[in-house]
């Protein structure tokens, strides 16, 4: 889940009877499963919530290039290098669609960058963990993209048209990403003891941060309740986490790995796994900026932006010059 704990500005969820006619008509359209499009009326809270969620999602794609980019230059074969390049390029493309979707809500990409760089806007906690071995690249595809898919598949049915449509394309690419991650690990577990140890170590380090991606339990959250009424969110964090664990544990077994959770047990009655509680203290520390890589990730993004200012200015000024030259030419011809 690339968007965590998105606020809605709601103090409580209103009933239809509490709403003014305009808002009521809007809510009835959502209840009827209709899509809301950019130019249509929407409550300010709906717009703001979407900006927060979509921009957080976009920032996660962009910052997410960094931990994987860390291994592109060290990928072990030409084919793995090409696949990883293609994957990271996809992530940047996802960032682009998402920024465009957010722009339809009246915010510019530069404003969103400013919010990221100032720390006002967040990105997913997962990208503040380091990629320490090649197996981590497999684990990110398998677990991190796997968790993202859990969240993004329902978002294809989100009430806001541009976001829902961006998600359709993104989901197709994400499933390729997840398969490439799993494939990296499947190859490594059939390799040497050192490679197998590398894979187990990656699972040990990425398992809990992946479960944290869904965010803490939100059954009592007013923001989640409001987002569900608006059909921006479709499932609770716990539901998605459960689905993820149920899907992933058999895959870990297939790879011959041990999930690092002593409380993990199949529960016949519920038809799913029981599992332990992630360390939420660690989660909140990472969100607060204290993860191992927070400073480096954000620093890298700020540096890319600041160092690129002359480049962007150069292009802008060239475009102005070219357009002035065209205008002068047209005037001379008349």
């Amino acid at each position: 889940m690339y968007a965590q704990m998105v606020k809605t500005d709601a103090a409580r969820v209103k009933s239809l009877d509490d709403m003014a006619p305009e808002e009521r008509a809007f809510q009835e359209r959502i209840d009827a499963g209709q899509k809301i499009e950019p130019k249509e009326w929407m409550p300010e809270g709906y717009r703001k919530t979407l900006v927060r969620q979509i921009s957080q999602h976009a920032h996660s794609e962009i910052v997410g290039q960094l931990p994987e980019g860390n291994w592109i230059t060290r990928a072990p074969t030409l084919e793995r290098k090409a696949i990883l390049l293609a994957k990271v390029q996809d992530e940047a493309g996802h960032g682009l669609y998402l920024y465009c979707a957010a722009e339809t809500l009246g915010i510019s990409r530069d404003e969103m960058y400013e919010q990221l760089h100032s720390g006002k806007a967040k990105y997913s906690s997962i990208f503040n963990y380091p990629t320490l071995s090649w197996a981590d690249i497999g684990a990110i595809g398998w677990l991190v993209d796997g968790a993202a898919i859990m969240n993004q598949v329902p978002l294809q049915r989100c009430s806001y048209g541009p976001y829902a449509r961006a998600m359709v394309r993104i989901c197709k690419e994400e499933s390729f990403h997840q398969r490439q991650g799993f494939d990296i690990l499947a190859k490594m577990v059939k390799g040497t003891p050192a490679q197998r140890a590398m894979v187990q170590d990656a699972l040990d380090r990425w398992w809990w941060p992946s479960l944290m991606m869904f965010g803490p339990s939100d059954d009592a959250s007013i923001h989640s309740a409001q987002s569900m009424v608006w059909k921006i969110k479709q499932n609770s964090n716990d539901e998605l986490r459960q689905k993820f664990v149920d899907q992933t544990v058999p895959q870990a077994e297939y790879l011959g790995l041990t999930v690092p959770d002593p409380d993990l047990k199949w529960n016949e009655k519920k038809g799913g796994y029981d599992f332990g509680e992630p360390d939420w203290k660690e989660f909140f520390e990472v969100i607060a900026g204290n993860g191992l890589c927070n400073a480096e990730r954000l620093g890298a993004r700020r540096k890319a932006w600041d160092d690129g200012a002359w480049f962007r200015d150069g292009l802008t000024v060239h475009a102005e010059k070219a357009s002035a030259r065209r205008a002068a030419k047209t005037a001379a011809a008349e």
Partner: peptide
Amino acid sequence: SEWCGHAPAL
């Protein structure tokens, strides 16, 4: 590929 994630524009 060393530029990945560090370029001046997306």
